[in-house]
Design a binder for these strands. Structure first.
Lengths: 109, 109
DNA sequence: ATTATAAGACACCTTTTGGTGTCCTGTCAA
DNA sequence: TTGACAGGACACCAAAAGGTGTCTTATAAT
């Protein structure tokens, strides 16, 4: 029981640049109403609202109604999955950096 | 000059589960030809090839022709961008964990 | 009481995505 | 030297994505 509403894939949710910017905006404030978010983007309210719905389905934002506005707040926890996924591959670019370093050292001789 | 061919967004490239599995498979071997990758998925060669093209455009895989086969290898470096992006948000789930921890401690009393 | 604002709910549209099948060309094996 | 195999290059298709505009209903402000 419980868990996020629609169970949207977090990787999918962060694939769109608009949604990543929404995440960033929400990270910089406690709570932001839809109309205030909308003015930050070159698109209509409906579009922004749809993006927020997708973020909500991925569990990345929460919303509550206050008066006539709907305020959104970030829930960054699901991003941990992304962080963990990439962590597995850090060894590869570390390996590459080492290889590059060796090459540079060889060239210096 | 140089840089990746088409400049596809890395976030976009890893959004698809098939492509994430391709990345994983390539991480576990040095080099894998297309037909060998294809048998791992419930879809045709053409589809897998398209996914690999997208990964290539994002700079995540390299390929070379050997005889009649095309062999693919992983280049994990671009994943660093994802890793860095998520790193910014670690403070949020750390904060949440702390809050949860406090709640649990309160309940124990 | 009336008007303006915030936003949900739709219907609608275009482009992109993720798949298919077919044909053609190299390359390796018999 | 004749098959069989690997895979590029298309053309094609259905569904999803990312927008739009309009209508309606709460709520707030005058």
């Amino acid at each position: 029981m419980s868990e996020n509403n629609q169970g949207r894939d977090v990787f999918d949710a962060i694939a769109d640049p608009t949604r990543r910017r929404l995440i960033r905006l929400l990270a910089e404030a406690e709570e932001i109403p839809l109309h205030e978010l909308t003015v930050q983007f070159p698109m209509g309210r409906t579009a922004v609202s749809k993006h927020l719905t997708i973020l909500k389905e991925a569990g990345l934002v929460l919303d509550r109604k206050v008066g006539r506005e709907t305020r959104f707040r970030l829930n960054a926890a699901p991003l941990q999955e992304i962080h963990d996924w990439t962590a597995y591959y850090t060894k590869f670019w570390r390996a590459n950096m080492l290889r590059l370093q060796h090459l540079l050292e060889e060239e210096e001789e």
